[in-house]
């Protein structure tokens, strides 16, 4: 419109710039914190430009971890990565199959099956945390990857997302496939799966971030420090007794913990936005 008055654009730039500064400042401080030694940080006068301890801090964190976490951060990152991948892939696998069943087959109890899955949408793991813990313990899955991953796969978001996508595929495509002699397996492999690629990728991005950032569940079921995820590890590095907290290592670990999911968001922004917006509909 004609109202492209310059001062209005300037206002917009200022507001957005302020937003970006607010959003970025805490992270900038963490990056700074990872470049100084303990003394510089704890005297409360950390400079606002990076120091020269980054090499030492990162190699110490990655290779030997801090005093309190006892495990190298690289180990924790590996655990986080396995858990995030397990959750993302597991969820995609079980939910694309169940959505295929619910959308493309007619069978008794179809509605029931759908509702059994659908209701899980409403209750996050936090509200049923202790009973779930007990079951995982009874199954002997404490301190295992299966125990970390499986309970978090039990949710309806993936199924709903795939169902929603399948509903947009024209009926005629299945009919043409039937006339072309394709049964359920062929239709799934030759048509449904290739068409679902972007949906799968979008769900993967969201679930990877979700898995990487899990806190309460791994906190409860991992007792061995070798099974710790990085988000848990960093919490253990910060204690109320200030003297024990190695802030430079904690901040280094925080930066390391943010890198994978933030990279995913930045480089797969289109898929990330798609996944986020569509899982919530």
């Amino acid at each position: 419109m004609v109202e492209n008055r310059p001062y209005r654009d300037l206002m917009a730039y200022l507001v957005l710039l302020m937003g970006v500064v607010i959003v970025a400042f805490p992270v900038y401080l963490a990056v700074l914190g990872s470049t100084f030694d303990a003394a510089t940080i704890s005297n409360g006068n950390m400079p606002l430009l990076p120091g020269d301890q980054a090499g030492i801090n990162y190699s110490q964190a990655l290779l030997s971890g801090g005093r309190l976490a006892r495990e190298p951060v690289s180990m924790m990152m590996l655990n986080s990565f396995i858990m995030a991948m397990g959750i993302a892939i597991g969820k995609i696998l079980i939910s694309i199959l169940s959505a295929f069943a619910v959308v493309y087959f007619s069978f008794p109890f179809r509605k029931t099956a759908f509702w059994i899955i659908f209701i899980t949408l409403m209750l996050p793991v936090e509200v049923r945390i202790y009973p779930t813990y007990k079951i995982v313990a009874d199954l002997g899955l404490l301190d295992t990857y299966a125990g970390l991953i499986l309970p978090l796969i039990a949710s309806a978001t993936g199924t709903l997302l795939f169902r929603q996508f399948f509903m947009t595929i024209p009926d005629e495509l299945l009919e043409a496939s039937k006339i072309d002699g394709a049964g359920p397996f062929r239709f799934f492999k030759d048509t449904l799966l290739p068409l679902s690629i972007t949906t799968i990728a979008a769900l993967f991005v969201i679930q990877f971030i979700y898995g990487w950032n899990q806190y309460l569940w791994p906190l409860l079921i991992t007792t061995k420090s070798s099974m710790q995820t990085i988000v848990i590890g960093i919490k253990k590095m910060i204690t109320t007794q200030d003297a024990l907290t190695e802030w430079q290592i904690a901040m280094t670990t925080a930066v390391l913990a943010m890198i994978p999911p933030v990279l995913v968001v930045i480089f797969m922004q289109r898929l990330f936005v798609k996944g986020l917006v569509e899982t919530e509909k």
């Binding site: 806190y215 988000v231 913990a257 943010m258 990330f272």
Partner: peptide
């Protein structure tokens, strides 16, 4: 891009 990435930061972090 600059405004959306805090979504990727874990709450504990």
């Amino acid at each position: 891009t600059f405004l959306i990435w805090p979504y990727a930061v874990a709450p504990a972090i």
